[in-house]
Amino acid sequence: MMINILMVSLTCCAFLCLFRMARGPTASDRAVAMDILGIMIVAFGALMSVRTGKEFYLTSALVWSLLNFIGVLALSKFLEGRGFDD
């Protein structure tokens, strides 16, 4: 019961992130919002694995955090105005 309330409030926070992602004036604002959403998905995976008792969700959260890291680094190279090859 308790953990359902936590999950619902985390979803409301994710909607605030999506608002900034839709509204942000420049492309960098959207990249920041995407990074923060990626970290919050890891927290969501941890809550889900406590609720069901399976470690599968935490494994996928681990993989997600690494993929998010690589994606944001590639995106920052792109925002800097250079190509991907240096």
């Binding site: 420049t26 960098s28 990249a31 920041v32 990074d35 890291f69 944001v72 680094l73 920052s76 800097e80």
Partner: peptide, 10 residues
């Protein structure tokens, strides 16, 4: 690390 990369790039 992502914080530093995003600040520098923007």
């Amino acid at each position: 690390t992502t914080e530093h990369a995003l600040a520098r790039a923007s």
